[in-house]
């Protein structure tokens, strides 16, 4: 990164198709602007996001990882986001253990009706990541 350009955190955003991805679509339809730092990967359900995907993203150079699903209790697959919450909470602990700031990993619950909330989640995450600087603890050298 050159000295002139400000640091822009790179975020991988796993969005469940039924709620959060639909919510981000609504942000688009409503033309709500937010930073482009987060690149979405749409998944069926937040419960299908393996902790391995999160670590893989850090390994490949992500500065932050977001997993966003339906509101708790509203998962299209009934209980996927419960699984996600329980399992991915452990990722935070693991990150801390490995010396990565746990705040680099975030979960949110954004419904299909919450375009503005989705934009805000991304804005907040980007702002919270800035002071942390680039993540290089888990980042691998390019093969």
């Amino acid at each position: 990164m050159s000295a002139q350009t400000p640091y822009e955190p790179k975020i991988v955003a796993f969005l469940c198709k039924w709620c959060s991805s639909a919510g981000s679509d609504l942000a688009g339809v409503s033309r709500i602007q937010y930073p482009a730092n987060a690149t979405p990967i749409t998944v069926a359900c937040s419960g299908g996001v393996s902790p391995q995907f999160v670590l893989s993203a850090f390994h490949k150079g992500a500065d932050g990882v977001l997993v966003s699903g339906c509101h708790i209790g509203d998962c299209h697959y009934m209980e996927g986001n419960f699984h996600a919450r329980r399992k991915l909470y452990l990722v935070k602990e693991l990150l801390e253990f490995t010396g990565v700031e746990p705040d680099r990993f975030r979960m949110s619950w954004v419904s299909a009706a919450e375009g503005a909330k989705f934009a805000q989640v991304v804005r907040d995450f980007v702002e919270d990541l800035r002071p942390l600087g680039p993540q290089d603890k888990l980042k691998a050298e390019r093969p």
Partner: peptide
């Protein structure tokens, strides 16, 4: 939904066309 795949420790179960390999 992929809940099985996200749980499996050995990547022994995966959702077709959304496999861990594809995700990676």
């Amino acid at each position: 939904c992929g809940a099985c795949s996200a749980t499996c420790l050995r990547a022994a179960i995966e959702v077709i066309n959304a496999t861990p390999l594809q995700m990676n």
